[in-house]
């Protein structure tokens, strides 16, 4: 059954349709929430909250828009609500120095970076990603794991395209810095 027909049934309050959509998106949604929170138990809780909100707000969903973007938007709001309750400043948390991580990033460091990437596994990158502020982790997972376009990300996060671009740029630089710090290479040339 297609996503469109399931969504139509969902808008009529059909729990079977919701269950079917939940099965279709379970791993991707769980991965997104896990990247956002870093804790499996919290990600599970937010997963449930997301689907409850989806059921409650299904009628307000505009079927002309992609369902996926709307679903991740609902999950984004659930995650943001949680993170704000946890720590009001955790979305783009600055370093203790007061500077954003990206601003501290050294210049090029190409050789060091290539060397690093060659020797590290994906799990290690995921660990480094977990050290980034939630706003950076979010944009990275939406772009690279969900393979969303910047326009789609802007729609999910309800922010201007330019801001998404800047955040992605800073997130990548922050990730590189985190990788370099973990490897002990320190400042790159």
């Amino acid at each position: 059954m297609s996503v469109e027909s399931e969504v139509t049934r969902l808008r009529g309050g059909d729990i079977e349709a919701a269950a079917s959509l939940m099965e279709r998106y379970q791993h991707r949604l769980y991965r997104y929430l896990l990247r956002m929170t870093g804790q499996p138990a919290t990600a599970e809780d937010l997963f449930q909250q997301t689907w409850l909100r989806v059921m409650e707000r299904a009628r307000s969903y505009d079927p002309r828009r992609p369902f996926e973007g709307w679903l991740f938007g609902v999950a984004h709001n659930a995650a943001i609500d949680y993170l704000r309750r946890l720590r009001p400043d955790s979305l783009d948390e600055p370093l203790p120095s007061g500077e954003a991580p990206a601003e501290l990033l050294p210049g090029s460091g190409v050789d060091a970076l290539e060397q690093l990437l060659a020797q590290e596994r994906a799990e290690w990158v995921a660990e480094a990603m977990a050290d980034l502020p939630a706003g950076f982790r979010e944009v990275l997972t939406l772009r690279f794991e969900e393979e969303m376009t910047l326009e789609e990300i802007a729609e999910v996060l309800v922010m201007p395209l330019g801001t998404v671009k800047t955040r992605l740029h800073r997130a990548l630089k922050g990730l590189r810095r985190s990788l370099e710090a973990k490897s002990g290479t320190g400042t790159a040339p």
Binding site: H27, P40, V125, A126, F144
Partner: peptide
């Protein structure tokens, strides 16, 4: 290479009972 690595990160599976 960093972008490729990010695209190839393992997908954590949702726990079996969650659904």
């Amino acid at each position: 290479r960093l972008s490729s690595t990010l695209q190839e990160l393992p997908t954590p599976q949702a726990p079996s009972g969650l659904l």
